[in-house]
Design a protein around this nucleic acid. Structure first.
Lengths: 108, 108
DNA sequence: TCAATATTACGGTATTTTCGAAATACCGTA
DNA sequence: TACGGTATTTCGAAAATACCGTAATATTGA
């Protein structure tokens, strides 16, 4: 029943965020999470169906440890939400800018 | 006398940029290059003195292949310049935003 | 207890990072 | 043309890290 460790806002680093988002799968996950601010479970935010659960889970862990998402439990599922407000205070404009560019760019 | 391969602007990817800048050493290099728009040789843009030359060279290669810098030869030295204009057309606001945040953030 | 959801553990493969040593390229000078 | 000095890359190898899949493990709800 160990709760997940989320870094405090002041412990979130710029390179940590960039590194986490520098993977196409993880960027897609974050885009999906951004599209559903109420949060979504791990399966729903999956960028493609072919990925193994464990692989997906590992990507969530990287995003969590980078400070990009917050994971809470609701019943049997884990709900992930983008930490938009906190990220905005820590690095104003960064995440929205990246997400906007990802939207307009045909490739990941 | 082999010229370096630089990706065309349309071949520069968002995740490629984020991945390249997701390394503290490379982010520092790019910050130094940004501070000297006329370009600087490899040694001058080095973030710290302890790094092996070959390691530094490898970081430059990553930055080059990601499309962040352009390397030309001037005499005995290699001059690196940030491809700011091209990057700005391809991903408006991205690189300046990251560099500004890196400036204000005490940590890399 | 059973099904659903997700994480963790583990092993294999692939990529990345790092370094020192050697090789390459260019310049100035002789 | 040859030579020495400087700047940088390439090579080769070791260590670290990343990624993915199978299987095992928790936790919740019915």
């Amino acid at each position: 029943m160990v709760q997940f460790m989320h870094p405090a806002p002041e412990d979130i680093t710029l390179t940590g965020i960039l590194n986490a988002l520098g993977d196409p799968v993880r960027l897609q996950i974050v885009r999906k999470l951004h599209a559903s601010p109420e949060g979504s479970n791990c399966g729903d935010a999956s960028p493609c169906a072919g990925l193994a659960r464990s692989t997906l889970s590992n990507h969530y862990r990287v995003l969590r440890e980078a400070g990009l998402i917050r994971t809470t439990k609701r019943g049997v599922e884990h709900i992930n939400v983008l930490r938009l407000d906190e990220l905005e205070r820590r690095f104003p404009g960064l995440v929205p800018s990246i997400l906007n560019l990802a939207d307009t760019d045909p490739r990941g």
